[in-house]
């Protein structure tokens, strides 16, 4: 395995989702690794932890958060529970999104985009440093898909991301589908974005399907990866080298065998790009 920002290349993985819990832990299907939505397992007991412990006994597992709200307020309880989960899994890294999810009082449970300003970059850098120090293990931030931009922004998203990860000294979870969705929604060139991401900080790649609406693209994770995103993925791999890759498929979830097919396609295209 190749070390990248002190984390291993785990190969090609998929998300561990409830309809597949029993099939995966009992059948031990072929898969390099799994990602779990951290908040779904930051619980005291019951079915989620039962299956999680059995999954971890058989595969590498990486927790991926949706609730840190790095552009918003710190939540001590959330971070403490995230650390407990990461320790339980002995996770090689932990990730969450470059976004905010609400205010201290109201959580909208969505990945809301940030204005790309110096002040916001400073805020996120401090939040990420605190998270990484608390977790005591590598932390990566993911670019979220977005449907709006702010008048107040003074730089493009890719500059903001590069600035934050360099100053916070953290990794990048590069979601290629999110770059494509945002590029289509906001009219920028996805290649410009992907070429600006610090290659040596990318610890993981996300791939997913999305929906095409009348006037915008929506990041729905409800289907296969589209051809345009596969092409961008190969370009990224060619540029940055071998990196752990994960297929996200959350809605209209297919059989696990279908997920294995999608993972096999990613494995083949990754190998082609590396050749």
């Amino acid at each position: 395995m190749v070390s990248r920002f002190h984390v291993p290349d785990l190969g090609i993985g998929v998300g561990f989702r409830r309809p597949h819990f029993a099939e995966v832990v009992e059948g031990r299907p072929a898969m390099d690794w799994f990602e779990v939505i951290a908040e779904n397992f930051m619980v005291d007991g019951g079915s989620p932890l039962y299956f999680l412990d059995r999954l971890r006994a058989q595969y590498p597992v990486v927790p991926h958060g949706v609730g840190l709200s790095l552009g918003g307020a710190h939540d001590a309880d959330h971070l403490a529970r995230l650390k407990r989960l990461a320790d339980r899994l002995d996770a090689p890294w932990v990730s969450d999104h470059l976004c905010f999810t609400g205010t201290a009082d109201v959580r909208v449970h969505d990945l809301l985009p940030l204005p790309y300003t110096r002040a916001m970059a400073d805020h996120v850098v401090e939040r990420v440093k605190r998270v990484q120090d608390t977790l005591g293990r590598p932390f990566a931030i993911e670019n979220a898909s977005s449907y709006l931009t702010y008048k107040a922004s003074v730089m493009p998203e890719w500059e903001f991301l590069a600035d934050v990860v360099e100053r916070a000294d953290c990794g990048v979870l590069l979601d290629v589908n999110n770059v494509y969705v945002s590029a289509m929604n906001h009219g920028f060139d996805a290649h410009t974005y992907l070429d600006a991401v610090p290659a040596d900080r990318v610890v993981q790649i996300h791939l997913a399907g999305h929906s095409v609406k009348a006037k915008y693209r929506l990041d729905t994770h409800d289907g296969p990866v589209c051809d345009e995103v596969w092409a961008l993925y190969q370009r990224v791999i060619h540029r940055i080298g071998s990196v752990s890759t994960l297929i996200e498929w959350d809605d209209q979830l297919p059989s696990f065998a279908r997920l294995q097919e999608e993972a096999a396609l990613a494995r083949r295209l990754r190998a082609e790009a590396l050749a």
Binding site: V108, D110, L112, Y147, L148, T149, K151, Y216, L218
Partner: peptide, 26 residues
């Protein structure tokens, strides 16, 4: 008022996407 809009969506239409998703998700 806060949002830049795009070639296809006004700022108000942009924030409306999040409002719709909020109700579906909740």
């Amino acid at each position: 008022d806060l949002f830049a809009g795009s070639a296809t969506l006004t700022g108000e239409e942009q924030i409306a996407i999040y409002a719709e998703q909020y109700r579906l998700r909740l």
